[in-house]
Design a binder for these strands. Sequence first.
DNA 1: GATGAATGAGAGTTCATTCAT
DNA 2: TATGAATGAACTCTCATTCAT
Lengths: 208, 208, 208, 208
Amino acid sequence: MLKKLTQEQLNGILETAISLFGDRGVERVSVAEIAKQSGVSVGVIYKYYASKQELFEACLEHSLQKLDDEIEASVHDLEVGASAGRLLQAGFDVCREHPAYMRMYHQITGFGDVELQKKYAELIESRSAKRYTEIIRRAQASGIVRQDIDASMLAYFMDNLLMMMHFSAGCPYYEERYRVFCGGDSILDDTRIREAFVRFVEGALRAP
Amino acid sequence: MLKKLTQEQLNGILETAISLFGDRGVERVSVAEIAKQSGVSVGVIYKYYASKQELFEACLEHSLQKLDDEIEASVHDLEVGASAGRLLQAGFDVCREHPAYMRMYHQITGFGDVELQKKYAELIESRSAKRYTEIIRRAQASGIVRQDIDASMLAYFMDNLLMMMHFSAGCPYYEERYRVFCGGDSILDDTRIREAFVRFVEGALRAP
Amino acid sequence: MLKKLTQEQLNGILETAISLFGDRGVERVSVAEIAKQSGVSVGVIYKYYASKQELFEACLEHSLQKLDDEIEASVHDLEVGASAGRLLQAGFDVCREHPAYMRMYHQITGFGDVELQKKYAELIESRSAKRYTEIIRRAQASGIVRQDIDASMLAYFMDNLLMMMHFSAGCPYYEERYRVFCGGDSILDDTRIREAFVRFVEGALRAP
Amino acid sequence: MLKKLTQEQLNGILETAISLFGDRGVERVSVAEIAKQSGVSVGVIYKYYASKQELFEACLEHSLQKLDDEIEASVHDLEVGASAGRLLQAGFDVCREHPAYMRMYHQITGFGDVELQKKYAELIESRSAKRYTEIIRRAQASGIVRQDIDASMLAYFMDNLLMMMHFSAGCPYYEERYRVFCGGDSILDDTRIREAFVRFVEGALRAP
DNA sequence: GATGAATGAGAGTTCATTCAT
DNA sequence: TATGAATGAACTCTCATTCAT
């Protein structure tokens, strides 16, 4: 096939790569495998991405963008309990459609290259930090949320809780971990856990 | 030199490997480097470990054992708030001495081999799950902890919170993430975060 | 753009290729680079030249033709000393305008493919051999040049001397070599060397 | 074979590489081919040479050293004509045993990398320049050699002549070129050319 | 039993060549 | 007819593993 790559094929490379990278990590996936599985030649991948590393980062950014889009759409009001529930659900929705996006996010946390880890931590987390801290701050101002803990710390704890829930919905280790703690179902199909999560968060945030 | 490796040398291999694997991941550390840095030959490593993979798993188990020893020593009573504080501190202590142990723990979550992930999730997490669930259950029985959420779920949320705090004390991505949310210091040197953590947990666990 | 390549474009390809090949050798110049730098597509180069190798040979022949034209114009009379000076100058003139032509000539001497080397040696050198031997022979007949050495050998020595001077005017290794032997200036800007050369040749050719 | 490489094998790699590089140039010889032909693995070549380039340079230096050793042994007295004959012969001798050494020398003159060319030009030629210029200078002082041409220029012309003769004894293009000028035999087996060369040089050097 | 040099499969990457447009 | 994206063989180099010493 010497036709120009269609947009579909281009997407195919990305999705294939995300799927493989997400499953096994950068180091254990070869460019040849990505090429074969997405039905293109090795060479053409290097036309679009200067190196395997660059392809990997493109996959990362694609995934993070998708993740962020979903999250963004789910933050509306000051009712932090409800907000938490919606944010939880938003991540779950992505994981149901594209668990690999979540796995890509998780990949960053275990990179071999520490500088890259820091770069992406800064990039990704500062957005969430700002977003959540702001919500909490306003909720504190209106008296809905406890004021004896700094907004940024509350945001941090909140995001920690959410992050773990989301990893549990897409990353094998955490999926298994969830099962070990809470029993048989996938976290995605367990309605009890969501309610419990919202209650837990509300308890943690309300004034003592 | 036809002497058998001393216990010290054997430990040296393990510690060196843990340090290197923890920093850069299995794939980016060569057996030759481990051998050189621990002052033994490549060959002898293969006498004790059948493959690089097996050495890595030995490192994993060594690290997890150490981690678990510390944690074990910190769980005594039913006062869950205080317990949480002590558990938090126990992890911080290990991280100060041997951040690589914590990093090794984190490595498992991003393994290339999913089956291995599951094996270790089962191995490691079922112990924590049992431990924490039991504590919570007793605390519920004595009315200290809310009863409207299942003990196993409370344990799960609790452990999620702890896990993230500990990763933030030893794993670069999470260290940076903590800084992004809460500002300059390392989590290890920040006393405010511990108090806040205990308060947050107490709020989350007390009856509504 | 469905127009046939203009003669100008065709020449552009050749000149670009000669310049690049002359600088870096066949192996270190890609067809894509030639195409880009001469403002045509890769495909069209393959319309005019069946392979990179063939393009290279075309460059070779173009260069050799140009070189030969200059030399041809400089051989008139029997006064061998003066002739030598004029031939020297002719090569210098080309080198000043198109050092790449000289470099292409030098390229042949280091080809990977020995058969091709021989083919071109035959092609190029038999012309010079004939030309110079003839001049010398006539000069011997008229007693200007020594008769105790065979005309073809004298021609050979003469051409050796000229060849080295010309390479020193266009090929980096020999340029540097000249500087090492004779000091700072480029051979092209050194008038002393020309006089010396003519004297040296005259000494070598006159009867003992 | 897992035995340590013998000195013989080590030499074998070098000689094989010199032979292949000399014939076809760096770019057209693969490390795999060198390994196969010298009966070792690819890996072991990289144990001894950090890169293909480095192996090539080692080959270069080995060849140049051998060449220089022979030349060195042939320069004794002030009788420049005889000296020239001996130097000529020295090169011929090497070419008979190891034509590849001479071809390696010639390789440098056509390198892709100009900086390397210059480095080696400096390295190699400054030695010859010094050597020959000194001989000539002394011969001028004692009146044997003409004084109307600078010693360094005479040395340069002399070395030019020698270089071409030597290339004609080992490098295919120049071998062929010699045949075109002077007829059938190899320059190595032609006794007339040596006499002629000595006479030519004597004529060129004697006072006018 | 310990050594560490040798092995060679397999990785990332390039680029001469093709051919649908 | 000219284009230039796609192809894939072939390259350089790495490193887990072996085994003669």
